[in-house]
Design a protein around this nucleic acid. Structure first.
Lengths: 188, 188
DNA sequence: GAAGGCATGTAAATCGTTACATGATTTA
DNA sequence: TAAATCATGTAACGATTTACATGCCTTC
């Protein structure tokens, strides 16, 4: 068994350890960094913070910054232990992909050549869109998302950029091949 | 709005169109093909088939092959229409990734250099494992998963092989860089 | 005759998103 | 003063996995 931490607990503890303090800050950090491979919504974050507190993995205290009601969290010893244990347990890890573009491509035999090409162009455009988002994030990532002492978030971003670039290229290459008639298509 | 079809309905209709007949056959087809980017379990497939029948997208009839109780489905006109509509609606499509290895890497600043390298090696081993599975599928894919007239399922498989190979390479490259000390690490 | 695969299904639990509700503060 | 943003939360819904239940058929 790999870890007692729920999926959302894993990002939460990690983000707290990197310097995020409130549920709101955790969500912000996720939205500019891990959301492409590990997302979470308020509907998960706030209840999970309560559960983590009950389990003694985080400590909560009202945060007096400004006058807005705000709750700050930090890891307890047990929380740091659980986080480190998860980060180093060699066990099997979640790897899930849900790619509707690829599913459509898989069913390409049910489409005309033109329709397949159109779908590939749409996927390519989607990749371009994601790459734009990534490049918008780059400056923040270089100086650290949560505070300025981290380097791995930026490396993870470059991974994302290279990966999506590869996908984009594949779409382009494949669409071109189909247009040139190098790959068949059955019907419409 | 992209499509009235639930995620599971999309594979089901597609697989039926490619030649699968029963819920069992659909599940088998998924498990050797789309499951890496679009999976489904019996707990979804059977209820969804009932719902699709109620909506008039599939037609059911008892299948007399052998003596085992067995229910065959085929697409109705409406079902074929809905499938084709989904396959060609240019709208936004689901693209979701959940990658725990990458999340661990993202939190690499919380680990020692050695621990990060170990994680990367584990990810690399995971990629090797997936590639083995893919290569085991290759012969079936060449001759078609559901029947022998399709070519796109095989192309989707080669996509998967190239993609995972790229990931594997990245793990290797990055682990080597970290070992050579070209990338820093904060702590343990 | 036992084991394993074929075949269909349900119930419970988990996980996750979306929409909603509330209220304070900051900025235009 | 209106709009946007900060900040916390809940309820409803939808999607998915897992475990269970059943029974037939084939092979050893």
């Amino acid at each position: 068994m790999s870890s007692q931490l729920t999926p959302t607990a894993r990002v939460i503890l990690g983000m707290l350890r990197l310097g995020a303090r409130t549920g709101y800050e955790i969500k912000q950090a996720i939205d500019v960094s891990t959301r492409f491979f590990w997302s979470a919504s308020y509907g998960q974050i706030y209840p999970e913070l309560h559960r983590l507190q009950e389990r003694g993995l985080v400590r909560a205290e009202p945060d007096p910054r400004g006058a807005v009601r705000r709750i700050s969290y930090e890891l307890t010893e047990a929380g740091q232990g659980a986080l480190h244990e998860w980060l180093t347990d060699g066990g099997l890890h979640t790897f899930e992909l849900r790619d509707e573009g690829l599913l459509r491509f898989f069913f390409g035999d049910l489409l005309s050549r033109d329709e397949v090409v159109q779908n590939l162009r749409a996927q390519q455009a989607f990749c371009d869109h994601v790459l734009e988002q990534f490049r918008g994030i780059e400056p923040q990532a270089k100086t650290g998302f949560v505070d300025e002492t981290q380097v791995y978030p930026y490396l993870a971003l470059t991974y994302g950029i290279e990966l999506i670039s590869w996908m984009r290229d594949w779409c382009e290459r494949t669409a071109a091949q189909i247009e040139r008639g190098e790959l068949p298509s059955t019907d419409g």
